[in-house]
Simulated scan of single mutants.
Amino acid sequence: MLSFHPTLPIVVIVVGVLALGLCVWQLVTARGRRLAWIRRSLLVLLAVAMAFRPALPGGEVPTASIQARVFVMVDTSQSVAAEDWGTDPRLTGMQDDIVEIARSFAGADISVISFDSQASLRVPLTDDGSAVIEMVRALKPEIAQQSRGTSISIAHDLLLTELERSEAEDPSSPAIVFYLGDGEHTAEDEPQSFSDVAGHVDRGLVLGYGTEQGGRMRISSFDPAEQEQYLQDPAGGDAISRIDEGRLRGVADQLGITYLHRAPGLPIEDALGPMAALDGEADLNQTEEARLEVAWILGIPIALLLAAEGFSLARSLRTTRGILPKEAGR
């Protein structure tokens, strides 16, 4: 069932009613332009609906009062598609663990950084756990054709920037870093050390995914037909991705935090609970609904209606320019 969480609801309602009233009045009086005003009425209704942030239920997150800055770094390179998380891709395990991190640190400010051949700030620091969960569930491996090799430290600069910026704004809150990856380093240059970041990190975990036997990787592609195929090794046969725990332990040592290998069926809550309890209390028995926002879907018809308005305006301007010279010559 849809739920709504409007921003500035009174303003939205007042502006929406006034705008819709104007459209209806013009619809009645401007008989020659009814189609245009029907279009504008729909535009107002869709904009108001979008402002009310419709959402579907997305599970539950606990209520809490944890004061911390939590930074989640997650590998999204092609290798996280390796099917050695049981029979599922590694990314499935990463997504489940990040959801548990969001639950355990509910109320804290959480940021998500993804890294493959480049680093991206997916979620700036926010205390909206449902936004983190929504984004993480939508994560996909990097498109294989776009990959230029992955460095396990490519997110170093972005992480350091975010840590320093947030520390300047909120120096009293501890910084907790979670690094989720398989340790595969395919870039030509050696990875940059995280040692200079360690001074800004209070605690955290490096979480490793994958097995020594490794797994095949379905191709991440824009082409649905290719998505059913497995990535091929240039030497022949299916390419196999294996965890590199040595590099992951190195990242943990540089950051001054603990390394933990992850596998299906191993709960992570036992490691997260004591860590979160140092900064507040998360009551997992008292929860609030997490929301999967679908307001973006309304942006599609809004964009189409705005395009129609632009086309109509351009046509009106051309007509006006054609009439004005004739009137001027009378």
Rank of each mutant, 00 (worst) to 15 (best):
F105R: 02
F105E: 07
A106M: 05
A106Y: 03
A106N: 02
A106I: 10
G107P: 15
G107S: 07
G107T: 07
G107E: 08
A108C: 07
A108E: 03
D109M: 12
D109K: 14
D109Q: 14
I110D: 06
I110P: 01
I110T: 13
S111V: 01
S111K: 01
S111R: 00
V112W: 01
V112Y: 00
V112N: 02
I113E: 01
I113M: 02
I113V: 10
S114P: 04
S114E: 13
F115E: 06
F115V: 08
D116T: 10
D116W: 05
D116R: 12
D116H: 13
S117L: 04
S117C: 05
Q118H: 14
A119L: 09
S120N: 14
S120T: 15
S120M: 15
L121P: 06
L121V: 12
L121S: 08
R122V: 12
R122L: 15
V123W: 00
V123I: 06
V123Q: 05
P124G: 03
P124H: 09
D127N: 14
D127R: 13
S130E: 04
S130L: 04
S130K: 01
S130D: 05
A131V: 10
A131C: 06
A131I: 07
A131N: 03
V132S: 06
I133L: 06
I133S: 00
I133T: 06
E134F: 12
E134C: 03
M135F: 15
M135S: 11
V136T: 10
R137L: 06
R137Y: 10
R137W: 11
R137V: 00
R137C: 07
A138V: 05
A138T: 12
A138Q: 14
A138I: 08
L139P: 05
L139T: 07
K140D: 15
K140I: 14
P141Q: 02
P141G: 00
I143N: 08
I143H: 01
A144H: 12
Q145T: 14
Q146W: 14
Q146E: 15
R148E: 09
R148G: 05
G149M: 05
S151P: 10
S151R: 11
S151I: 08
S151Y: 10
I152M: 11
I152N: 03
I152Y: 13
I152C: 08
S153M: 07
S153K: 03
S153D: 11
S153R: 04
I154W: 12
I154H: 10
H156A: 14
H156I: 11
H156N: 15
H156Y: 12
D157M: 04
D157T: 11
D157C: 00
D157A: 12
T161A: 14
T161S: 13
E162M: 07
E162G: 00
E162P: 01
E162W: 02
L163I: 10
L163Q: 03
L163A: 07
L163G: 04
E164D: 10
